[in-house]
Computed example of a mutant assay.
Amino acid sequence: MITAYYAHRLPADYDVALIRERARQRGPLWDGVPELCFKGFLLRERGRFGAVASNYSSLYLWRQDEAFRDFLVSGRYKIVTDSFGRAEIQPGFALDARRGSGRLARFAYKEERSIAMDADLTAAFAAEIEHNRATAEQPGSVAAVVSVDAQNWTFTRILLSENEPDRESAGVAYQILHLARPLLDTLPRAGDR
């Protein structure tokens, strides 16, 4: 599986109601995309949930790398570039992806962790997979994913949750404006081995 994330920083005076409307209109177009586990239309709104600036982001979990390739070459990404310009897409190889018992994902949390130069990679991968499985079991968890960027040697932890950010929340919090989830329910359940 492949994760992909990109963000567009919005001007300080940008009307985020336009982003909410875009997600409302475009979100359902992704609800049946083949080989897509989920796509989150995400918003960080200045002054809300700790955000100092506004940005509009997309977060994907693709079941196969060919599906991610098809997204790029079919013109689906052109719709984004026509509106916001070309963003740097951050891809990752999913090490583990689980669905939790939560039903309505309202927030996404993204946390990046560097892998130390001298780390035992096998042990580091195992620890992240175990951490992800525990995260998926938390109350309110809709899905949890951990991926690795093997070029920059970082882990990215993703949590889709019913729960609003609080002091215990790890990572950067995003409001989920729409969650397309064609294959989310095919992911292993939290607690499955």
Rank of each mutant, 00 (worst) to 15 (best):
Y174A: 08
R69S: 11
L61H: 07
W30S: 13
V52H: 00
R69V: 12
V73I: 15
E112M: 13
S58Q: 11
G85V: 11
F107W: 12
D118V: 10
L187V: 04
F107M: 13
T186K: 12
L104P: 00
N132I: 05
L160K: 06
A127H: 06
W62T: 08
P28Y: 05
R20K: 15
E128L: 09
D118N: 13
D15A: 14
R189M: 13
A119D: 10
R86A: 14
V33R: 08
R133P: 00
Q90Y: 12
E35P: 01
L177T: 02
A53V: 13
K110E: 08
A87W: 02
G75N: 02
L59I: 10
A190T: 01
G171V: 05
T122C: 10
Y6L: 14
L43Q: 03
K39P: 01
R63I: 09
G140I: 10
A150N: 06
P91T: 05
Y174F: 15
P91I: 08
E162R: 07
T3I: 06
S141D: 01
A97N: 00
L43T: 01
P34K: 00
Q138V: 10
R99H: 09
G100K: 03
L183W: 06
A23Y: 01
L160R: 05
P165V: 14
G47C: 06
A7K: 11
A119K: 09
Y60S: 05
F84L: 14
A119N: 07
M1K: 02
A94E: 03
E66W: 13
Y109W: 03
G32R: 12
E66M: 12
R157V: 02
Y5A: 06
S161P: 01
A17W: 01
N152W: 12
F107G: 02
L59N: 04
I115S: 05
Q25D: 08
T81R: 11
F68L: 14
R26P: 00
L184A: 08
V52Q: 06
T154E: 04
V142F: 07
G27F: 08
T81L: 12
A87I: 05
L36G: 01
A150W: 10
Y109R: 12
V33G: 00
D13G: 04
G32H: 12
P188F: 11
Y60K: 04
A108E: 02
F49P: 00
T156N: 02
N55F: 01
D118R: 13
I79R: 10
L42D: 02
L104E: 05
F107R: 03
C37R: 13
A190R: 02
A190M: 04
I2T: 03
E66N: 08
R98S: 10
R9C: 07
G50S: 04
L61I: 07
L184Q: 03
